Simulated scan of single mutants.
Amino acid sequence: MPPHQAIRIAEERGLDLVEVAGNANPPVCRIMDYGKYKFMEAKREHAARAKQKNIVVKEVKFRPKTDDHDFDFKVKHILRFLEEEDKVKVVVMFRGREVVHRDIGYRIIEEVIQRVGDKAIVEKPAGIDGRDMHAILAPRIIEAPKPPKKPKPAKPETNETEVPH
């Protein structure tokens, strides 16, 4: 119908004429309460956002000369982050001429991966980015075991040789 006729009908009903699909040929419009429509859209978006899980990436930094106790302490932090289902970015920072010894960085990252291997999967292996070397670990999602199915009650067995009297 022509736009002026649709506008007149919408005004008679106390509603609005809202363009739903402007790219269609001809454009599609609908007569509705626009305020209520916007409210319902916002409510739908809020519900979708509430169900969404935010992915958090925690960063743990090491140096080539990180002491054993500090290393153990940081690995405990990584394990805690993985248990909270956060991703972990393991970074080895090089300063000055340390960047020449990339093998040390690879060894540090491999040691971290070995220690947290049962709780994490390697999402991105060790790689160099400027003066830093980093790898990304994601939590290993272990599905809860399904409860065993209850066996169906056995049907009473009948002996075909017996004849009821």
Rank of each mutant, 00 (worst) to 15 (best):
V57H: 12
F62I: 06
F62L: 11
F62R: 03
R63D: 04
R63V: 07
R63A: 08
P64R: 07
K65V: 04
T66G: 13
T66N: 13
T66S: 14
T66H: 11
T66P: 14
D67N: 06
D70N: 14
D72V: 02
F73H: 07
F73N: 07
V75A: 03
K76S: 13
K76T: 11
K76R: 12
I78Y: 01
I78M: 02
L79K: 13
R80V: 04
F81P: 01
F81W: 04
L82M: 11
E83Y: 04
E84K: 14
E85K: 13
E85I: 05
E85Y: 13
D86K: 01
K87T: 10
K89M: 09
V90P: 01
V90I: 15
V91D: 04
V91Q: 05
V91R: 02
V92G: 01
V92H: 00
M93Q: 14
F94P: 02
R97P: 03
R97I: 03
E98I: 08
V100E: 15
R102E: 11
D103M: 08
I104K: 10
I104D: 06
G105S: 09
G105I: 01
G105L: 04
G105A: 11
G105K: 03
I108W: 00
I109G: 01
E111G: 05
Q114Y: 15
Q114M: 13
R115I: 06
R115L: 08
I121W: 06
E123W: 15
K124D: 14
P125F: 00
A126Q: 06
G127D: 14
G127N: 15
I128T: 12
I128L: 11
I128H: 06
G130M: 11
R131S: 15
D132T: 12
D132P: 02
M133V: 13
M133Y: 07
H134C: 06
A135Q: 03
A135Y: 03
I136Q: 07
I136A: 12
I136L: 15
I136D: 10
A138V: 08
P139A: 13
R140Q: 07
I141W: 04
E143C: 11
A144M: 10
A144L: 11
P145M: 12
P145A: 13
P145S: 12
P147T: 10
P147H: 07
P147C: 08
P148N: 00
P148C: 00
